[in-house]
Design a binder for these strands. Structure first.
Lengths: 347, 347
DNA sequence: ATTAGCACTCATCGAGAGAGAGTGCTAACA
DNA sequence: TGTTAGCACTCTCTCTCGATGAGTGCTAAT
């Protein structure tokens, strides 16, 4: 049996209708709404074929048809026509990424919020995997009253600061000296990359300031890695409540308890290693049992050539694929561009 | 009609039973479970009295009784006996606030998470209202490659930093000079408190560095207030799904759409101005229509004598008041103590 | 190849019966 | 006078059953 033009038309009609109504689609509906110039009976014959081919299925004998995972897959691969975002939506996105936003975290938050808002599904945003960041600049600044602030700038552009107590009689000159040595020894090194011998060297050169060093190095090793570099940010979780497939609370709970675990989020967002661009996982194509009635559309974002992370949208398999792909494509481009601006041209 | 010992016992039994089962309580149940030494018939008589007095009500003729708002109020004011936290729970809280946590934001996050986890309801945590913070120390640090970092320490202990572009040929000495003037003029002032004449003075003294100043002052005025100082952090929102009163999705949606708006959260958490300690709002005592089938228990936290904010727990009116009061009391004390440590004794 | 007609299936809805929980009232009892 | 057993009554909840209707597959006609 081969997939001729008319079968495609009918499959397309079923999918479109089901996406928008969440109700099984009957032959009558198709012939009425989507003028294909053939009678319901003809459509029924074709539908029987489509079912045999595995593209659609029947919830029960006297119901219409709904798309199968395979059907969605065929739609996504062959039939789907991308939409255009409206002027207004483009505007929303653009203004979300406008110049004033200067912090990476804020950009990611907004990305999530916009994704959720524009798609009405749940958005996932992975923080940039900047890789092992190395120390770029270390500076101790006296703040008066036996307090100093330790500032650590990483090569990724991230800046960490931390207040610390210093002896009463210390001067900015002392601190500069310490900063100087720390910079000389640690610049360009990653956190794991600091050998014990290096630390010894530092202590040797700065024996006089042992106690400050103790504190500073402890802070650098202990506090700074705590910045979560592999978080996945969720937004619009409640949108699932608007989906009829989640009208009973038990199903919502199953999904939510999955989404609550950071680790599984990572699995869900995960993409084939070398993939770039947009990936679509439909229903059972998802590894996780709990979201096999969901689909996940993800896209990567990058700075330069380096892929830094993914953003994704999670919704029911009966998801508006065309819409989501369009949105996520636009968002990932915008996000990449914005991060490029933030991480490279610092301003 | 007066509230004798036995009526109290019966009211207490009804409330306890209803809190744990969410089912209307009948006379038979009370006489069986809570041995009061009287027959169901006697209890029925008393219940009729309690209903007349407004403490309990009947969903319909052939059902048991459920506590009314007034009943809960009487329970909370007169009958409730606080529980003790278990060793393990005490441990959870203590370790959540242990020394290693050094950041205010992190402390608040944990507070919310623990509150939600220990109560199984929804937790609200208000960020500390530190009041108008004034500049304590301003410092520009050259970071090489025409970049500098602007560090602003507020008297509250908050530290903000921001990268900025500076001319290629600038030196740390120049930056120190600028920092010096900025400190001299701005120290002790609040953000709104900087008069135009002051800015003019600064520009006069540092005419040479006009462009750096432009940027620095813009950043100080523009970026730093963006740190959200009046946010309310929600945690455990999904816990409401486990409450039978939210078993249908529509009710969940109503509540969630309320909780999504930051402004209304503020209303909900708001307490009488001079109140301190724990406040309980039961059902219709809440201003908001949408949560009149909910109760809200809030407590303030403070550093020294100054009340900085509130934490709260939102659950159905059929909430385990004794438990929540105990937890929230312990948490608010711990939170106060921890913030005291963080904000005063910096280290 | 297409379509009208028709018998058949099955979910959904509403009505009605029965069960069960709980009450209020009455009368008996200590 | 307070307590209790007994009983009729109410009302929700659940289950069943038939009607309804949407949709199908098959057959025969075009």
């Amino acid at each position: 049996m081969k997939m001729d033009e008319r079968k495609q038309q009918i499959l397309l009609a079923i999918i479109k209708d089901y996406i928008s109504t969440a109700e099984p689609v009957g032959s009558r509906t198709i012939s009425r709404k989507y003028k294909l110039g053939v009678s319901p009976a003809t459509i029924r014959n074709e539908m029987a074929d489509l079912e045999e081919m595995g593209f659609i299925e029947q919830p029960h004998t006297s119901a219409g048809r709904i798309p199968s995972n395979l059907g969605y897959r065929y739609y996504v691969d062959c039939l789907m026509q991308l939409e255009q975002l409206t002027e207004q939506e483009e505007g929303t996105i653009r203004s979300g990424y406008e110049n004033k936003v200067r912090e990476v975290g804020e950009v990611l938050n907004r990305t999530g919020r916009m994704l959720a808002q524009l798609t009405h599904y749940t958005a996932l945003v992975q923080t940039p995997q900047l890789g092992k960041s190395s120390y770029k600049h270390i500076q101790l600044v006296l703040m008066g009253a036996a307090q100093a602030i330790l500032i650590v700038v990483m090569d990724t552009g991230a800046v960490h600061h931390q207040m610390m107590v210093v002896p009463e009689n210390i001067t900015q000159q002392d601190l500069d000296q310490i900063s100087g040595v720390l910079n000389a020894k640690l610049q360009g090194r990653t956190m794991d990359n600091i050998r014990l011998t290096l630390i010894k060297e530092i202590y040797f050169e700065l024996a006089r300031h042992r106690n400050i060093l103790d504190l500073a190095i402890e802070l650098m090793q202990d506090r700074i890695p705590s910045v979560k570099e592999d978080k996945i940010h969720l937004e619009g979780v409640f949108n699932i409540l608007n989906q009829p497939e989640f009208h009973n609370v038990e199903k919502v709970k199953v999904l939510l308890s999955l989404l609550e675990q950071e680790g599984t989020l990572r699995d869900i967002l995960e993409k084939p290693k070398d993939s770039q661009g947009i990936t679509i996982k439909i229903g059972s194509e998802n590894a996780r049992q709990e979201i096999q009635n969901c689909s996940m559309i993800t896209a990567t974002y990058q700075v330069g050539d380096k892929i830094l992370g993914s953003i994704g949208v999670l919704g029911p398999t009966r998801m508006d694929y065309a819409r989501v792909v369009t949105v996520i494509d636009s968002m990932s481009r915008n996000l990449s561009r914005t991060l490029e601006r933030l991480l490279k041209g610092q301003g």
